[in-house]
């Protein structure tokens, strides 16, 4: 555990020194500003549009960090020689992946927290905004914890560019899986219903964590039970995908 923490410290410091992270931070701040400007231009319910765009920005920034940094740290093609130096030391491959995962989660936490603070400031430090942002952050972190494990799996499975593409595919499919299953249940054939039912159980269902519309409407907050259920689902997904990632990584020739 101690060695994992040492490595996590080095990874985190390296990532914070990386210019790409600061570019993402700048892009995130611009997205929030854009959300405010665009929200004001919307006819009807400008408040909802601001929240929708703002929360989506936090989610997209987190995704960009997870995919970019996850693939660059876990891909043996990019960091192969660095891995060789580290993995001959008393450090297991599992610890190495665990350190990357902890780094990804920390980066997402720092980035989304910073964006939430900026948003809160722009919204005039209101209590309601604080509650909505806090709840949104928790759901975002749950979603990203699953995406972190999935990206590690993709990075250990394939080449960097393909791993990024696969990571994004998992994100898009994960968000549309429930809707697609509902659609084929109504109008699909037995075969497509079967295929989608299997996919539904194999792939992580990220739509479970998507509470942006609900929070943006400001009508109601997700209840504690749905949060607990989503938390449990996230833990199961993380364990499964992280186990698959470490199994593949353990077999990798460096």
């Amino acid at each position: 555990m101690k060695n994992t923490l040492f490595l996590f410290g080095v990874f985190l410091r390296e990532s914070i020194r990386n210019k790409v992270l600061w570019f993402f931070a700048l892009a995130g701040a611009l997205m929030i500003l854009a959300a405010l400007v665009l929200g004001e231009m919307v006819v009807g319910r400008p408040g909802k549009a601001i929240w929708d765009l703002g929360l989506s920005s936090i989610n997209l920034l987190s995704l960009a960090i997870i995919v970019t940094f996850g693939v660059s740290m876990a891909s043996s093609e990019l960091e192969g020689r660095m891995m060789q130096l580290l993995l001959v030391k008393p450090l297991s491959r599992r610890q190495y992946l665990a350190a990357i995962y902890m780094t990804l989660m920390s980066l997402v936490l720092i980035a989304s927290l910073s964006m939430a603070l900026i948003s809160w400031a722009l919204l005039g430090f209101s209590t309601m905004a604080l509650v909505i942002l806090a709840v949104a952050l928790i759901w975002n972190l749950l979603e990203m914890s699953v995406m972190g494990a999935v990206v590690l799996f993709c990075a250990t499975l394939s080449a960097p560019q393909l791993a990024m593409f696969l990571g994004l595919c998992f994100y898009i499919i994960g968000h549309s899986l429930s809707e697609a299953l509902r659609l084929v249940t109504v109008s699909g054939t037995a075969l497509t219903r079967g295929v989608f039912a299997v996919l539904y159980f194999i792939l992580p269902n990220l739509s479970l964590f998507n509470k942006k519309s609900l929070l943006a409407s400001g009508l109601t907050l997700p209840d504690l039970w749905s949060l607990l259920w989503a938390g449990l689902y996230a833990v199961c997904c993380v364990l499964i995908w992280a186990w698959l990632a470490q199994w593949l990584f353990g077999k990798k020739e460096l």
């Binding site: 410091r13 390296e14 020194r17 990386n18 020689r81 660095m82 130096l85």
Partner: peptide
């Protein structure tokens, strides 16, 4: 893992973290 503690290894054309210093 334990007896790997007593090994020192230098790979061919080693690469390091980009922003780390030799001291670190």
């Amino acid at each position: 893992e334990l007896n790997r503690r007593h090994i020192g290894f230098l790979p061919e054309n080693p690469q390091f973290f980009k922003n780390i210093s030799a001291r670190e």
